[in-house]
């Protein structure tokens, strides 16, 4: 009844396949089958953003996303950002602004900010809060995170202009 199936997808730009059961989440697959531990399950309800993954260019909660849905899709994790050993401007900005303490929520925040800036290169505060309202930082680094978003936006615009 719950036969395993093979799904194929691109993971951080590489074509991969995995044997999954229908009830596996995409988060379980990237962690257990591909040892990518940047995304993690925290609230398990789509509220906290720690499990954020990008599927076909859209942020999803990996803990609420069936792995079967990723068949044929392009999946990106936080590990895709420094592929060439160069940090993404969003990562740089988080470090420079000290936008974390323990770092548990940071991969999810960074991916959501990247999605925000892809869609809104110069976001106002309302827009930033809209995109980040589903990410929780229990260390309370929100003021630094807001600063990091604006700094990252400036960095990206500057590198585009150059």
């Amino acid at each position: 009844m719950t036969a395993l199936r093979t799904i194929s997808f691109t993971l951080n730009g590489k074509q991969v396949s995995a044997q999954i059961a229908p009830h596996h989440s995409l988060l379980e697959v990237v962690r257990n089958d591909f040892s990518l531990y940047g995304a993690r399950e925290s609230c398990g309800q789509g509220l906290c953003g720690c499990c954020t993954l990008i599927v076909d260019g859209r942020a999803v909660s990996g803990c609420l996303y069936l792995a079967a849905f990723a068949d044929g899709a392009a999946v990106e994790t936080i590990e895709s950002l420094d592929r060439d050993n160069v940090l993404d401007p969003v990562q740089e900005a988080f470090i420079e602004e000290g936008a974390f303490q323990c770092g548990f929520c940071t991969p999810g925040f960074v991916l959501m900010v990247k999605q925000l800036l892809d869609e809104h290169p110069d976001p106002d505060d309302d827009r930033i809060r809209d995109y980040l309202s589903g990410n929780l930082c229990r260390c309370g680094a929100y003021p630094e995170i807001l600063r990091a978003v604006k700094s990252a936006a400036r960095k990206r615009r500057a590198s585009k202009a150059a």
Partner: peptide, 9 residues
């Protein structure tokens, strides 16, 4: 309504 990730799915 919920958040961006939920609205995406």
């Amino acid at each position: 309504l919920s958040n961006v990730r939920v609205r995406n799915v």
